[in-house]
Computed example of a mutant assay.
Amino acid sequence: MIRFLTAGESHGKALIVVIEGLPAGLEVSADDVSAELSRRRLGYGRGPRMRFEQDQVTLVGGVRHGRTLGSPVAIEIANTEWERNPDKWQREMSPEAADGPTEAPLTQIRPGHADLAGMQKYGFTDARDVLERASARETAARVAAGTLAKKLLAALGVEIVSHVIQMGPVRSHGERPGPADLPRVDENEVRCLDLDAAAAMVTEIKEASKEGDSLGGVVEAIAYGVPIGLGSHVHWDRKLDSALAQAVMSIQAVKGVEIGDGFEVAGRRGSAAHDPVTWSDAQGYERTSNLSGGVEGGMSTGEPVVVRAAMKPLATLNRPTLATVDTATKEAGVSFKERTDVTAVPALGVVVEHMVALVLANEATRKFGGDSVDEMARNHRTFVEALGQGPVGA
């Protein structure tokens, strides 16, 4: 099984991710990880930090001469601000007791963030003890881990693409991209293939920016080539859709997750809410639609796995207006501003891609096993060939 753990704070020295369970022989480089991290910085409406943050990647362990060893892989993503602004961050975020406490702790909590609940939970008196770790900067480490998961899935013929389907009130009604469309999606400034909708999204972002406000939206990730049988119906925590929902819901600012057409079919009658199954000697079993998003009974069906995530508007605003309280003085005020984006929805799609990849890669290793990529690919190939021999149970 694949597990990963991230460590580090937004303005700390670095983010670290350790990935366990990858088979040996997976080709990987720091450039591969850097390329995916650069995609995370895409999107109209991002703040200035995205322009100067370079995500300096170092493969610390688990990789030799460009191939995984089967041992845990450790990746460091250096924080360029740590070196660029040492007088502030190297003291502010120092791990050394001699460098603290902070002379001016943050006590004016920000509504919509983890600040107040985190301070109350852990007994902190400085909101920075919470917000530095709660920051969406942590998703860079997830993307690094997901890069390796995507490469493992590619060895099994699985490819994942994401796109934006809604920005604020503007919704796309265009085509669903396939794997070959991913470069075209990334080239669009809001990562939307529906060009009319994309233009309206940019306009919406500009209007929100003028008013110092923020926008949320919805992204969709589609995994193509997912083999039948990932996940299981036998336990609540083995179901593929529950694992996907947990992984995607854990992303900062995500408040809703949908598998397939989940919310839409909730308003239909059963006769129009499920995917009919057909059989032919040439094609075997086929579903004539994919309302289920490629998952039935907690297991993948062989259809594309479709996951949507709804992101709330960012709570940090360029024109702070949200009422708040200073936890030290209890005086009323408005939330303070740190550098912020108008929207991070285009980047969310990239993060969702990688979280979906991590879940699918974990289930693939559980299903097909193998100490090396070649062994895992052989096991996968044998399973697929056996399914193609005839009806279930033959």
Rank of each mutant, 00 (worst) to 15 (best):
V185C: 07
F263T: 00
V60I: 15
Q108N: 09
G157T: 14
R142D: 14
G157F: 14
G297S: 05
E211I: 00
L22W: 06
A24C: 08
N188S: 13
R366P: 01
F336W: 11
Y224A: 03
D241K: 00
D281G: 03
L59H: 08
P227H: 01
Y122T: 03
E303I: 04
S10H: 14
S232Y: 10
E189R: 14
R191L: 11
K88Q: 11
L131V: 01
L322Q: 15
Y224V: 04
R137Y: 12
G349P: 01
G297F: 10
R171E: 12
L317G: 01
P48L: 14
V60H: 02
S300H: 05
V170S: 05
L116Q: 03
N318Q: 10
Y122E: 08
E9I: 04
F4Q: 03
H113L: 02
G45R: 04
T107K: 01
S335G: 07
G284M: 02
I165K: 06
T365W: 00
R133K: 09
G298I: 12
G8K: 04
A200K: 12
K255Y: 02
R339N: 13
H274S: 12
P313K: 02
S292I: 09
A198L: 05
P227M: 05
H274N: 07
V384L: 12
M311C: 02
G229L: 10
L182Y: 15
G43P: 00
K13R: 15
G229M: 06
V57I: 14
K330A: 15
R46T: 08
A149P: 00
K210F: 09
G370M: 04
D374I: 11
M201K: 05
P101G: 00
K206A: 12
P72G: 08
R308S: 10
K255Q: 08
N85A: 10
V143P: 07
S300A: 11
G294P: 00
G284C: 00
M93P: 09
G390Y: 12
P105I: 11
T139D: 09
Y285H: 12
R339H: 11
A377T: 12
Q54N: 11
V248T: 07
I19P: 01
L230K: 01
G212D: 02
E20K: 03
N85M: 12
G393P: 03
I160P: 11
G62E: 08
H233W: 13
S271W: 15
K206V: 13
V234W: 13
A323Q: 10
R133E: 07
E81K: 05
D181M: 03
T316C: 03
P111Y: 03
M311R: 02
G267I: 04
Q56A: 14
V185A: 09
H113I: 02
R133M: 06
R319I: 10
D194I: 07
G157R: 14
G349D: 06
A117S: 13
L148K: 00
D241M: 07
G229P: 01
T329L: 05
L69W: 04
S232V: 06
E53S: 05
Q252T: 15
A357H: 07
T58L: 13
H235R: 13
V350P: 09
L5A: 15
D213R: 07
G393D: 11
G118Y: 05
G369T: 07
E96N: 15
R67L: 12
D261C: 06
M50T: 06
G229W: 06
E132R: 01
H163K: 04
P320N: 13
W89G: 07
S214V: 09
A272N: 04
G62T: 06
K150E: 14
